[in-house]
């Protein structure tokens, strides 16, 4: 396959960025999208040009590092991560636009790499169960109904890639935040901190500069792990319940 790539190049957060065009040849349909970028970078390197910077690591769709907007869609045309997108999803001769996540809370570091530290800070604000090592009771002391365990798992699958934010016209992080709130909220182990968790995480999310949610549903459509849109409505309910129970000034 022969393709034309138009890639966002930006040297650093303060530098102006712009799209640059590159032709690539000899692309196999079995290549992953990132292996296709490897091919381009190999050529740029040997030619002495700066290769395109992009985040990637496990390349099996679970670490959440890769983060490309491909032809205007977060992670591209398939419902998966950029690393698990294969070139068989494109046609010979295609022109493909590649951009970084676009969101006020995710500043560009270089080219296609963005800073997602805001996600870590949302988890730090309450996305955990406070159980120091050694303090745990016997695992079978509290049976968990299978339905609750499955629901927790469904939300815990979030890989923290940020596609939800990139896809959202408002740059909202509601799907990410609600995934953790609902994961821990579904389990008896998460119950004692249920109210403070949702209030603190939502407050942190707002403080990071993510946009508000208008339930456009783009986030759930882009999510490579299929976190459902109902996750957001469930978190809204949790937040409302908690804010009535724990009034904050």
């Amino acid at each position: 396959m022969k393709l034309t790539l138009r890639i966002w190049r930006q040297h650093d957060p303060d530098a102006p960025g712009g799209m640059a065009a590159y032709d690539v040849e000899g692309i196999s349909p079995d290549m992953s999208f990132l292996e296709m970028l490897d091919t381009l970078n190999e050529r740029l390197t040997v030619e002495g040009q700066d290769p395109v910077a992009f985040d990637h690591d496990c390349r099996e769709g679970i670490c959440g590092a890769c983060s490309l907007v491909i032809n205007g869609e977060a992670h591209g045309p398939e419902r998966t991560t950029s690393c698990q997108l294969h070139m068989r999803s494109f046609r010979d001769g295609d022109t493909i636009d590649v951009e970084p996540w676009r969101a006020a809370a995710f500043p560009v570091v270089r080219d296609l790499v963005v800073d997602r530290g805001a996600f870590d800070r949302i988890i730090q604000s309450g996305g955990y169960v406070s159980v120091p090592t050694g303090a745990a009771p016997e695992a079978h002391a509290t049976p968990v109904p299978k339905a609750a365990a499955d629901s927790a798992f469904e939300h815990a699958e979030c890989i923290g890639c940020g596609a939800c934010v990139a896809a959202c016209p408002n740059g909202s992080a509601m799907l990410f935040t609600s995934a953790k709130v609902n994961h821990l909220g579904a389990l008896p182990q998460g119950a004692p901190e249920r109210e403070t968790r949702v209030l603190d995480m939502v407050a942190q999310m707002d403080a990071e500069g993510f946009g508000g949610c208008t339930l456009t549903g783009e986030c759930a459509t882009a999510c490579p792990k299929g976190i459902p849109l109902t996750s957001i409505t469930a978190m809204n309910r949790e937040w409302l319940r908690a804010s009535r129970k724990v009034p904050r000034g």
């Binding site: 955990y128 159980v131 303090a135 745990a136 695992a139 079978h140 049976p143 299978k146 389990l187 182990q189």
Partner: peptide, 22 residues
């Protein structure tokens, strides 16, 4: 054996049987 206890307490959603056990 302690690891499983610790992880369950943290909210790790291990697979469970219908009776609610691991």
């Amino acid at each position: 054996v302690e690891i499983i206890d610790q992880c369950v307490a943290q909210g790790v959603p291990f697979a469970r049987e219908y009776g609610g056990l691991l």
